[in-house]
Amino acid sequence: MLNVGKIEEGFVLDHIKAGKGMQIYRDLGLDKLDSTVAIIKNAHSDKMGKKDILKVECDVNALDLDIIAFLDHSITVNVIKDGEIIEKRALTLPKMIKNVIHCHNPRCITSIEQGLPHIFILTDEEKELYRCKYCEEKYKAKA
C-alpha cells in the first residue's frame, strides 16, 4: 500500500468521493498555491469503499474552505498542527460563490460579457438554493 507521510501544519480533506479529488483541487484554487499538496486517489475507505484525500501544507485560513460545503457535504476538514489533528472544522454554505460554477442561462449577460465573473448568491439556505447574481437563474447541480 502506498504511504503518504504526515503533514506538520495544514489541513486534510477526507472522504472526498473517489474521482472528485482533482476537481476539488481546482475549485479550491490549490493549483495556484505555492505549497505542498498531496492528492491521494482511490484510497481504501470502510465507509465509502474508495475515496480521495487531499493533504495541503499551508495555513488553513489562507483558503475559503466553505466552498467545500457547497461542492460536497460529505467531505471532512481536519486541521493539522504539529502533526496532530487539532480541529474538525464545521463548514457552512458560502453566501457567495465566484467562478466555481457557471450560469447556463443562454439569456444571461454572463454568456457574452468579457471578463465577467460567474457569481452565485445563496438565496435559500434551507433548500441550499443558489441563484446567478445577474439573471437570478437557479443553479441546478448535475446529478
Binding site: 442561462n105 439569456r107 444571461c108 449577460i109 454572463t110 454568456s111 457574452i112 460579457e113 465577467l116 446567478c132 447574481k133 445577474y134 439573471c135 437570478e136 437563474e137
Partner: peptide, 26 residues
C-alpha cells in the same frame, strides 16, 4: 438590454445612477 442582468453589470461599473429599463425576461 436583451441579456438578463446587463443593467446590473452596468451599475457595477457606472459612475452615474443606472435604471433597468427591462432586461430580457428578467
Amino acid at each position: 438590454h436583451p441579456k438578463e442582468g446587463a443593467p446590473m453589470v452596468a451599475a457595477e461599473k457606472s459612475l452615474i445612477p443606472v435604471i433597468n429599463g427591462g432586461d430580457g425576461g428578467h
